[in-house]
């Protein structure tokens, strides 16, 4: 037997995490064993606390310890714009820009029949509930331009158009600092489609 039982179990559990292979799991486990008891206790309790306290916000389906979440209950946010994203990490990415002042809605995934995810598995009912708020004038779809992202965007656009709210999606095209010459065809086609008047 390579490891004694408790160590083997720790490595096994760590390996279940995304992006962690056997080698990394082993390294993490050895690192943890070298640390002070206080650190390990705090790590363990932070795992438990996060799991027990973080819930989905009943309005926007984002992760939060509060319900409604910090963003939904923030009076300073613009209630007229709602940005729809796939995952909580997309909210973080957009918040980092400091540009967007509206509210969010998190779908918690994308349509993908191969993964058993249809529209019913996403937080679409909650989205429709949010949209009953007549203050919302614009819905921005900020969803990755992948196959599944496109399918979800198409689905949502068909669903939301009849509601009569202004429906937009974020632009796709050349990354800042890149070069036309080195852009691939599809990106260029998208960039041309999404061109806008110079002001």
């Amino acid at each position: 037997m390579l490891y004694s039982k408790p160590l083997a179990r720790l490595i096994e559990e760590l390996q279940r995490l995304p992006g962690i292979g056997p080698k990394s799991a082993q390294r993490l486990a050895f690192h943890i064993l070298k640390q002070e008891d206080a650190f390990v206790k705090s790590l363990a309790s932070s795992l438990l606390d996060a799991k027990s306290q973080i819930r989905l916000c009943s309005r926007c389906a984002n992760l939060s310890a509060q319900d409604p979440c910090e963003l939904c209950s923030d009076e300073k946010r613009d209630p007229s714009v709602l940005c729809v994203v796939a995952e909580p990490r997309d909210v973080i990415a957009l918040e980092r820009t400091g540009e967007f002042k509206g509210r969010y809605h998190v779908l918690q995934g994308l349509i993908s029949p191969l993964d058993g995810i249809g529209p019913e598995q996403l937080k679409i009912k909650e989205l429709l509930l949010q949209l009953q708020d007549s203050a919302i004038k614009e819905v921005i779809l900020a969803i990755n331009p992948t196959i599944e992202g496109e399918a979800t965007t198409l689905y949502l656009s068909r669903l939301l158009k009849p509601i009569g709210v202004l429906l937009t999606r974020i632009a796709f095209g050349l990354p800042i600092g890149s070069d036309l010459e080195f852009a691939d065809e599809l990106t260029l086609i998208r960039a041309l489609e999404g061109r806008r008047e110079v002001r």
Binding site: L114, G118, I147, A151, T152, L154
Partner: peptide
């Protein structure tokens, strides 16, 4: 990839309307 997603829906006997977003792509 789109084909695989669409075929999965076909196997699941989805409603024809659900195919729309895949057919467009």
């Amino acid at each position: 990839k789109i084909l695989a997603q669409r075929n999965q829906l076909l196997r699941l006997q989805a409603a024809p309307g659900e195919l729309e977003v895949w057919d467009i792509q």
